[in-house]
Design a binder for these strands. Structure first.
Lengths: 256, 256
DNA sequence: GCATACTTTTCCACTATCCGGAAAGGCAAT
DNA sequence: ATTGCCTTTCCGGATAGTGGAAAAGTATGC
């Protein structure tokens, strides 16, 4: 049976139909954009007829699209509408949004607000730097522990969730993460040499609410400028800008 | 019965459970962030027990969150992950993304890629202008026909969909839209005096694939600069930049 | 060109399971 | 303490979702 289905198999008190529908959405979310019925039936462990019925229902709801050419199935556009509604009413996003442009001014690079959802770190809002690289990975996402923002947020999660995050990465990073967790959880900011071309480093600070829980990460990408001040100095300045914005956002949030 | 439920009531060949689950998601998407069970049961026309069961299932799947304080229900974070996966694999977004920074350079204002989903126009990718207003309505969304991008895309839709769009706006814009549809559908670009503070006008061009169907709109917000060239001139220049990017994106798309 | 293999879709009887009414638990007020 | 409101659980019965198998539709081979 597919790994994903196990995670959902034993969920007492959950409607089977809903469970199966969500399972299909998850299967569609991984792998290629459009997938065939047979394959989905195989991976889900459900019968062909059931999968077909479920997908037809989801298509009717626009949560799933069927490619008219190949009649294969993929995720649907309605998901973006629901997601937008979710984000539009997320207090933390509204709280930081006004400060993002200021931070860009100070940092000079791209600034992003990242959320930890499931085991992935995803960018929810961004302000691109002035001389940003044309290759902007807007909807890219990676396992949380591979990104600086994810480490910051992941280390602050309860152990149960932390284990899930570890399971998503390779042996090397797992060891690193286990060794560094304490440090990551306590640090007021975290930096990392960036994989992104044209960017020297990325640095993140947590966005905390009135109760002290970290809701999101504010991440800046420092551009690499030849012959400019050493990275260490610019990094320090960036941290100052980020923290200031984070604290301001935290204040407007208050005790949620 | 609530207006939304009617739209879903008669959907032959759709599983009732899925239909109801989606109905609840839609109800949660409109109105306040967190809503109470009783209210949802009322609006959906379903029994309390049923709504409770459905919501519990959706919570287990992270598509819905329950506020531990008030035990009210709202949309869940998993929606953003699914939405991200959808967007990450949407060809048109990948095709324009590299050109957005160029367009910003030329236009000097914020540039956005907008999609028509349901009856709403939503921004899927954006590059903020250099002196962008701190008030950036990132996850704002409005009925399609109120925005210039929505008019461009809506007018190109089949009549059936066009009617739905009309139903979402007030009488005045409805008349305007009916009169202008032909024009909007044929125009290679469309502009409009902007409601957004600090912005003089917005202008949009369609992003078309190899078959000539408009998949999205590329929208630029021209900043208002005092004593600068008349808006008309800057608008013309912006249209040039936008069209060039749109054509380049269309080429990399090819015949999908 | 036909034949083969594969994939999607439909049909149908069965019973698993989803539904609604009603009762039981919580939580804030008055 | 009592009342009212909202959430959660319980339960029998009938609905409606399930899976096997057959049919329709499409691509691939020779």
């Amino acid at each position: 049976m597919a790994p994903l289905s196990e995670a959902l198999t034993d969920a007492p008190g959950s409607l089977g139909t809903v469970r199966n529908a969500v399972l299909l959405l998850r299967l569609l979310a991984e792998g290629p954009a459009y997938q065939q019925l047979t394959d989905l039936a195989d991976r889900s462990g459900l019968s062909l007829a059931t999968v077909h019925r479920l997908l037809r229902s989801l298509v009717l709801a626009d949560l799933v699209e069927q490619d008219p050419r190949s009649s294969r199935y993929g995720l649907g556009a309605e998901l973006t509408r629901l997601s937008h509604r979710y984000l539009a009413r997320l207090p933390i996003l509204g709280a930081v949004a006004p400060y993002l442009t200021q931070v860009r001014e100070g940092v000079g690079g791209t600034v992003q607000v990242e959320l930890l959802v499931g085991t992935a770190i995803v960018g929810m809002d961004r302000v691109d730097g002035f001389n940003a690289d044309p290759y902007r990975n807007s909807h890219h996402w990676r396992p949380a522990l591979l990104e600086v923002g994810g480490r910051l947020l992941g280390a602050r999660c309860p152990d149960e969730r932390w284990k899930l995050l570890l399971a998503e990465v390779d042996e090397a990073t797992r060891e690193l993460a286990d060794a560094e967790r304490e440090h990551w959880a306590g640090a007021p900011w975290l930096s990392m040499i960036s994989d992104i071309p044209g960017t020297a480093a990325e640095v993140a600070v947590p966005l905390v609410d009135g109760h002290g829980t970290a809701l999101a990460a504010l991440v800046a990408h420092l551009p690499s400028r030849e012959g400019a001040d050493p990275v260490a100095e610019r990094l320090e300045a960036s941290v100052a800008h980020l923290t200031r914005a984070a604290m301001a956002a935290g204040r407007t949030l208050g005790h949620g």
